[in-house]
């Protein structure tokens, strides 16, 4: 029997990008969600390291002597409120409220910057007090975990600035909405990691 190829439909180009347009945003956000979950595993490894060597101070200065809980509470509040303001920004984007969107994104950026500044200040202070990343296993684990979280927040800030520029230039296009959605997932995720950080590292660290 001879195989007869079906005739190629009119207008068929082989490019499927346009045909799947409606799934694009959802697929991208789901893909980003999978990235976030893989990032969870990265943090899980760092938490496991902290759980194993987080109390090995090698006779050097301990966490108990340095941690100041009211300072950590302030950091926590900044990050929690920035997570909330990002949620408000998303609601404004859904309601096509550009002014609200930029206001809430600006608030998120400021709160995030405040958090990063406090964290950097803490690192400098700790290092001056004799708790540098190379001081002991415990401090290596501390800086490894908190530093990785801080780097993520920094990355989120850079992303936020570039996305704000794009939103300003191009407005709320489908692509920009998807980007905004991904960044909001990322931002909320960082706050969720911080819950684990302040509970396990700071609160349990001073007990």
């Amino acid at each position: 029997m001879e195989y007869v190829a079906e005739p190629i439909p009119e207008g068929y180009t082989g490019v499927v990008a346009d045909e799947h347009h409606h799934d694009y945003a959802g697929d991208t956000v789901f893909g980003f969600w999978v990235y976030i979950l893989s990032d969870c595993i990265l943090f899980a490894v760092l938490f496991a390291v902290y759980a194993v060597i987080g109390q090995e101070f090698a006779g050097q200065i301990t966490a108990k002597e340095l941690f100041e809980l009211d300072y950590v509470l302030m950091e926590t509040a900044l990050l929690l409120f920035s997570s909330f303001t990002f949620g408000m920004a998303i609601l404004c984007a859904n309601a096509e409220d550009r002014r609200g969107l930029f206001t809430w994104l600006g608030a998120t950026g400021l709160l995030g910057a405040g958090f990063l500044a406090m964290e950097l200040n803490e690192f400098v202070h700790f290092t001056h007090e004799g708790a540098a990343p190379w001081t002991s296993g415990a401090w290596s684990a501390f800086y490894g975990l908190i530093g990785t979280h801080g780097l993520h927040v920094f990355g989120g800030m850079v992303w936020l600035i570039f996305l704000a520029i794009r939103l300003h230039r191009e407005g709320l296009t489908t692509e920009n909405r998807t980007r905004l959605m991904c960044l909001s997932l990322f931002w909320h995720f960082l706050d969720i990691i911080w819950i684990c950080v302040f509970s396990v590292v700071y609160l349990m660290g001073v007990l």
């Binding site: 959802g26 929690l80 949620g87 609601l91």
Partner: peptide, 22 residues
């Protein structure tokens, strides 16, 4: 829900979340 299954919240939902988190 939007097309991709990513849900959008409401102000009340975010405020409740914030209060509970605090």
């Amino acid at each position: 829900q939007s097309a991709g299954g990513a849900a959008h919240g409401s102000v009340r939902e975010y405020v409740n979340g914030l209060m509970l988190s605090l």
